[in-house]
Structure formats: structure tokens, C-alpha cells
């Protein structure tokens, strides 16, 4: 994996801008990401990290500049090359756990009615069961999402996102609504799946310690320039791009304060 990915970056942004009217959200972004990286993105609300995730997903298009996947412009609508897990509403409430996962294969093999029967169905059921087992949902196969806890719902959303074997997995604050204990389990799960499925992960989080713990690379989104009379005039950029090793990474001084605040919050 390492030799090829070093040469051609998976994702490249060249002088990327995103504006909504006069509101500049992102400006002058230049980044390149290799396959297999685990990028965590932190920053204040409205600093553009979710916008960047949406651009990776194809829900938003760059206003100017380029966003490339394998050197080609990234597809401008969501498709099976990029999986997504949102904070909520990620699973289909009218389908059981198993149906939620096999539906992806049914989309693939049954263009007309989106449903499989008989032997074909049995095959995708086996595949889905194996995947659901790896996220620990075997006891809940026949349950509907409303019968699941928050953590189980997110496990399902992750399994669903992985069945079409995307190369890129996008996570939009996936564990933001979970209890701390459940969150720790989910961290282990996502790290395991990241390794097993050779994924490149982009994850938006509000939790700096989570960002440091999970990522191989941590991005801090912030505005470099500020106009106090017109806060919308300048957009955000990646102000820190920190390589994270699994050991302790020394924290830049500017980032210490929020981390300490976070630690204090956790202690409460």
C-alpha cells in the first residue's frame, strides 16, 4: 500500500475556495492526502470543516480551485466511492438492521426494483451478516433502527457505509451524540475497520482529544485573516496540519487552552 500511495496522492486540493454569495467559507486551501491516512478535522462551528467534508462527498462544489480524487476532479454528486456516516439520520428507519445493509447490494444488482430474491439475496445476506458481525450487531439483525441505542445505530451506519467497499470513509461527527463509554468502544471499532478495510478516513469532530487519539493527521480549521467589521469577508483555512503518531504528540501552545477546557469538561 505504501509505495504506490506515496507517489500519487488520493485527494488533492489546489487553491480551493468556497463562497456562499459574499460569505467566504474556505479560502486558498492547498492540501494533499495519501491513501490510508486517517484525517481528523477540528475547529470552531462555521469554520468550514463540514463544508469541506461535503465537498469531498460531492454535495457541494468548489467555487474556484480544484479538488481532485486520483488526480481527476472529484465526482460532483455522492456515489459509492465515498461512504458517509452522519451524526444522525444515517440509517433507513423503515428497514431492519439486515435490510439496511443488504439494500446497498440490491441497489447494485437490481437497477429496476432495487430488490433481490432467492439465491442472489441469500448471497448478499451472508456478506451483510459477516459485516454486521464485525461491528457487533449480530444479535440485532431483525430489529428496526428505532429499537437500537444511539451507539448501535452508528454501528449500523458504519456497516452500511462499508458494504460497497468505498476507498474513502467520511465521518461527520459520528460519535458526537454518544455517551463517553460508548464512544471509547466506537473508537476501537473505527480504528479496527480503518485497518481491515484499507480506508482513507476524513472525520469531523468537536472533540480535540478524539481527534488526536484517532487520527494519523489532525487539521485545525480557522480563519487566518479577520475583518472585525465584516466577519464574512475572509474564509477559513487549515491553520495547523499536525502529523499524529500513536504516541503523545506535543500540543502547540495555541491549542492547549481548548484542550484543557475539554479535559475539565470531561472531568465534570
Amino acid at each position: 500500500m505504501t509505495d504506490t500511495t506515496q507517489t500519487t496522492p488520493l485527494i488533492t486540493a489546489k487553491n480551493l475556495w468556497k463562497k456562499y454569495g459574499n460569505n467566504v467559507v474556505l479560502e486558498r486551501m492547498n492540501i494533499s492526502v495519501n491513501a490510508g491516512e486517517f484525517i481528523t478535522m477540528v475547529g470552531t462551528s462555521g469554520c468550514g470543516k463540514s463544508t469541506f467534508l461535503k465537498m469531498l462527498l460531492g454535495m457541494e462544489e468548489p467555487t474556484s480551485g480544484e479538488l481532485l480524487l486520483d488526480g481527476k476532479p472529484i465526482p460532483n454528486e455522492p456515489d459509492q466511492s465515498r461512504g458517509i456516516v452522519f451524526q444522525q439520520y444515517s440509517v433507513f428507519p423503515h428497514l431492519t438492521v439486515l435490510e439496511n445493509v443488504i439494500i446497498a447490494r440490491e441497489f447494485e444488482h437490481s437497477p429496476l426494483i432495487g430488490k433481490l430474491f432467492g439465491g442472489k439475496k441469500q448471497k448478499v445476506i451472508e456478506e451483510a451478516k459477516a459485516l454486521l458481525d464485525s461491528v457487533g450487531l449480530t444479535p440485532a439483525l431483525a430489529k428496526y433502527p428505532h429499537e437500537l441505542s444511539g451507539g448501535m445505530k452508528q454501528r449500523l451506519a458504519i456497516a452500511q457505509a462499508l458494504i460497497r467497499q468505498p476507498r474513502i470513509l467520511l465521518l461527520d461527527e459520528p460519535f458526537g451524540a454518544l455517551d463517553p463509554g460508548i464512544r471509547a468502544d466506537m473508537h476501537q471499532l473505527i480504528l479496527k475497520l480503518w485497518r481491515e478495510h484499507n480506508l482513507t478516513v476524513f472525520m469531523v469532530t468537536h472533540d480535540l482529544s478524539e481527534g488526536f487519539y484517532l487520527g494519523t493527521r489532525l487539521w485545525v480549521f480557522d480563519k487566518l485573516r479577520r475583518d472585525p467589521h465584516s466577519p464574512e469577508a475572509y474564509g477559513a483555512n487549515i491553520t495547523y496540519d499536525l502529523p499524529v503518531t500513536r504516541k503523545k504528540t506535543p500540543l502547540p501552545n495555541e491549542l492547549k487552552a481548548p484542550e484543557e477546557i475539554k479535559a475539565a469538561e470531561m472531568a465534570l
Binding site: 454528486e77 455522492p78 458517509i84 439520520y89 439494500i103 447494485e108 452500511q160 460497497r164
Partner: peptide, 26 residues
């Protein structure tokens, strides 16, 4: 929720499949 429509697309669904499997049953 629009998230469901986006999710279905990341699972490879066409417009027609989204109508038939996601929207109509709900």
C-alpha cells in the same frame, strides 16, 4: 431527512431506486 437521500447515493442508488426503496415505503 436529506441525510438519507445522500446516504442512499453513497450506496450506489439511482434516482429511481431512491424513489422506490427509500421514499415510497416511508
Amino acid at each position: 431527512p436529506h441525510e438519507q437521500i445522500v446516504k442512499a447515493q453513497t450506496l450506489g442508488a439511482s434516482t429511481w431506486q431512491i424513489l422506490v426503496r427509500i421514499l415510497i415505503p416511508q
